[in-house]
């Protein structure tokens, strides 16, 4: 059986996060890149900070009972592309 895809965010010490009204500005120290994100991205980054979680694990963490798995996977893909999340198959 194949292992499920897992995701991990940088340690909290690798990110500087500042609330700007309804948005959050994030400075990623490793890349020097600034990101401007909206909920649920900051919450995801905190939940995945320095630990690997599967999509199942993320859903449990956020108690996502309705389980919009495709939407969650799409957000994770965007965060991987932005360099804010690591993915391991």
């Amino acid at each position: 059986m194949m292992d499920a895809t897992r995701y991990r965010a940088p340690q909290a010490s690798d990110l500087s996060m500042v609330d700007l009204d309804e948005l959050v500005a994030i400075f990623h120290r490793a890349s020097g890149i600034t990101h401007l994100v909206a909920s649920p991205v900051p919450e995801l980054l905190i939940a995945l900070s320095g630990r690997w979680l599967t999509l199942d694990g993320i859903e449990q963490e956020f108690e996502l009972v309705d389980g919009n798995r495709a939407g969650l996977a799409s957000i994770m893909d965007e965060l991987v592309a932005a360099g804010l999340i690591e993915r391991r198959a």
């Binding site: 500042v18 500005a25 400075f27 020097g32």
Partner: peptide, 18 residues
């Protein structure tokens, strides 16, 4: 020079707009 200043620029600008 925002990019060149790195985190110093980030903190200065987020503080300003806040």
């Amino acid at each position: 020079n925002y990019v060149v200043l790195g985190e110093r620029g980030f903190l200065a600008l987020t503080r300003l707009v806040s």
